[in-house]
Amino acid sequence: MTNHAQTESSGVLDGIVVADFSRVLAGPYATMMLADMGATVIKVESPGGDDTRAWQPPVRHEQSTYFLSVNRNKQAIALDLKDDDDLATAHKLLAKADVFVENFKPGGLTKFNMDPNTVAQRYPHLVHASITGFGTTGGAHLPGYDLLAQAASGLMDITGDPAADGQKAGVAIFDVVTGLHATVGILGALQERARSGKGQHVAVNLMSSALSGLVNQTSAYVAGGVVPTRMGNDHPSLAPYGPFAASDQPLIIAVGNDNQFRRLVDALGASELADDARYATNPVRNQHRDQLRAELEQRLQRKTASNWVEELRELGIPCSEVFSIAQGVEFADQIGLTPVQPAGEERIPTIKHPVDYSRSPVAYDKAPPKLDQDRQSILDWLNSES
């Protein structure tokens, strides 16, 4: 079976077959990354379909845009693992695949002889990636929802207004991070298999990915003994870094070093602030961030945010207006990132794969599939001798 990303230069994973038994977001995001890179991804769903097919609104032509966001370049078949014939088909797929991705509850595949131990014995060539919410030991019974990981990891406790309750991120961020970790783990296991000829089990979970993804915030606690607190849009280690009031709307300024700060205050006509003992270095700016904010906003309110962005960017000062999602997509297009890529003959608008390859370009040859759309071609391939 060939992948659906065949171009004059095939994708970097051309020839790799992925049996995708995952649902919702983390797993499908990972397998879409692999499909974009040229792997043949066979999406296996229950007869009822991936849950996200029903996560509506919003929709495009009655299809959930949530489902569309993570399922392009895949072939689809519906299998009921409780049915003997369908279960046999699932095992035929594992026998021919290179990678097996699933996010069943720990132990949920044992009755189908698709658990890690059985897979390792029956299909030693297979890279088996399992995605769980909270691992397979003490947290095995906990449901794997991104919101729970945001709450349990501490993300919600450091997000939002200090005077209000903790706030979740505006997207299922740890599902995405876990999906990326799964992709990295799979690629590493495939590379090792190329040396040893043997597959292995790759395990990722939302909680571990969340703690890793919190980077400097978790490091503050484990390495420095500091428990981070909610700071709104301020940064715990940098100032000025966040939104500042211009004459019409907030302006994002992200100063990462003292040279940038000096250029900023020069542009604002306040060069003396760079030599002020309260602001001369980043550590002291953090100690006096409220006074500094007042000094900066007094001057920023002389112009609009867009005026300042145009002026400050010319000076190499990191800044931005605060955009809506629509404006963000439009901005990416304006700067040549071509963020929207139509997928398949249906030309379903999808967001571009985030990696560009110089010799093995990503293709968008197949739209997110309808339920069971490719059943016959998949069965024909499984029953062939090749």
Rank of each mutant, 00 (worst) to 15 (best):
G15S: 14
S130P: 03
E45P: 05
S324E: 09
R262C: 08
Q376R: 15
A54P: 02
A78Q: 05
D372C: 08
L312N: 07
L25A: 04
G107Q: 10
Y364F: 15
G225S: 10
V184W: 06
V12E: 11
G166I: 07
A182D: 00
Q301V: 06
E8C: 07
A90L: 03
G11H: 08
P28W: 08
L81Y: 06
P354M: 06
T40C: 14
S271A: 13
D290S: 13
L142P: 00
A277M: 09
V284N: 01
L68Q: 07
G139P: 05
K352A: 13
T218E: 10
S10R: 14
E330P: 01
R230C: 10
V12F: 09
P116R: 12
A203D: 15
M32F: 12
A26H: 09
D266C: 00
R23E: 12
D165Q: 13
R285V: 10
R60C: 03
T52F: 13
I77C: 04
M32A: 11
K352I: 02
Y66S: 03
M156Q: 11
R293K: 15
P349M: 04
Q291V: 15
K366T: 02
M33F: 09
I131P: 01
N257D: 14
P342M: 01
L268N: 08
N73G: 06
T7K: 14
A280P: 04
K303H: 14
I378A: 08
K111H: 10
L371T: 08
F331M: 08
D365I: 03
L126G: 04
R230K: 15
K198Y: 06
M1C: 12
V202M: 01
A194N: 15
L382T: 09
S219L: 10
R53G: 03
S208L: 03
G15M: 13
K82S: 14
T118E: 13
Y221K: 03
T304P: 03
Q191M: 05
P228S: 10
S196C: 07
G336P: 04
N307Y: 13
D115E: 11
S10G: 12
R53D: 05
A267S: 15
